[in-house]
Simulated scan of single mutants.
Amino acid sequence: MAKALIGFVGGPTSDQLRETARMHRRIADLEAEVLRLKIENDGLLAAVREHIEPVTAGDLLEPAAH
């Protein structure tokens, strides 16, 4: 039945193998980009945390001074 779904009785064609290889490379490139962006985001968050005063729930309940 699997052969009928694929539409032929042999293995994958050379075009299919090339397309599969291309897709694997693209996936690897995208995974690397996601990792790079996560690392960059973590660095940006760390930099922001160094410059922002922590806010507690109590701070939010106090009336603002004018």
Results as ranks from 00 to 15, higher is better:
Met1Asn: 07
Met1Leu: 08
Ala2Met: 10
Ala2Val: 15
Ala2Gln: 08
Lys3Pro: 09
Lys3Asp: 15
Ala4Trp: 03
Ala4Val: 08
Leu5Lys: 12
Leu5Ile: 13
Leu5Val: 11
Leu5Glu: 14
Ile6Lys: 14
Ile6Asp: 10
Gly7Gln: 03
Phe8Pro: 02
Phe8Ile: 03
Phe8Ser: 13
Val9Met: 06
Val9Glu: 13
Gly10Ile: 04
Gly10His: 13
Gly11Asp: 04
Gly11Pro: 04
Pro12Phe: 11
Thr13Asn: 05
Thr13Leu: 08
Thr13Glu: 08
Ser14Thr: 12
Asp15Ser: 11
Gln16Trp: 12
Gln16Asn: 10
Gln16Ser: 12
Gln16Gly: 08
Leu17Gln: 11
Leu17Trp: 07
Leu17His: 07
Leu17Cys: 07
Arg18Cys: 03
Arg18His: 10
Arg18Asn: 05
Arg18Phe: 07
Glu19Tyr: 06
Thr20Ala: 15
Thr20Val: 05
Thr20Ile: 11
Thr20Gln: 15
Ala21Arg: 15
Ala21Thr: 14
Ala21His: 14
Ala21Glu: 12
Ala21Tyr: 14
Arg22Gly: 03
Arg22His: 09
Arg22Asp: 12
Arg22Lys: 12
Arg22Val: 05
Arg22Glu: 13
Arg22Thr: 07
Arg22Phe: 12
Met23Val: 11
Met23Pro: 01
Met23Asp: 08
His24Gly: 10
His24Thr: 07
His24Tyr: 07
Arg25Tyr: 15
Arg25Met: 12
Arg25Ile: 11
Arg25Leu: 14
Ile27Phe: 11
Ile27Glu: 15
Ala28Arg: 14
Ala28Leu: 09
Ala28Asp: 15
Asp29Gln: 15
Asp29His: 14
Leu30Arg: 13
Glu31Phe: 01
Ala32Thr: 02
Ala32Arg: 09
Glu33Gly: 03
Glu33Cys: 03
Glu33Ile: 04
Val34Met: 05
Val34Trp: 07
Val34Glu: 07
Leu35Glu: 08
Leu35Asn: 04
Arg36Thr: 01
Arg36Trp: 01
Lys38Asp: 10
Lys38Arg: 15
Ile39Gln: 08
Ile39Asp: 15
Ile39Ala: 10
Ile39Thr: 14
Glu40Lys: 05
Glu40Ser: 09
Asn41Pro: 02
Asp42Val: 00
Leu44Tyr: 06
Leu44Ile: 10
Leu44Arg: 15
Leu44Trp: 11
Ala46Tyr: 04
Val48Trp: 06
Val48Met: 14
Arg49Cys: 01
Arg49His: 04
Glu50Arg: 15
Glu50Ala: 12
His51Asn: 09
His51Ala: 09
His51Thr: 05
Ile52Met: 04
Ile52Thr: 06
Ile52Gln: 02
Glu53Asp: 09
Pro54Gly: 01
Pro54Trp: 01
Pro54Tyr: 05
Pro54Glu: 13
Val55Asp: 00
Val55Gln: 05
Ala57Asn: 00
Ala57Gln: 01
Gly58Ser: 01
Gly58Pro: 00
Gly58Cys: 00
Gly58Glu: 06
Gly58Phe: 00
Asp59Met: 04
Asp59Leu: 02
Leu60Met: 01
Pro63Ser: 00
Ala64Tyr: 04
Ala65His: 02
His66Tyr: 02
His66Asp: 05
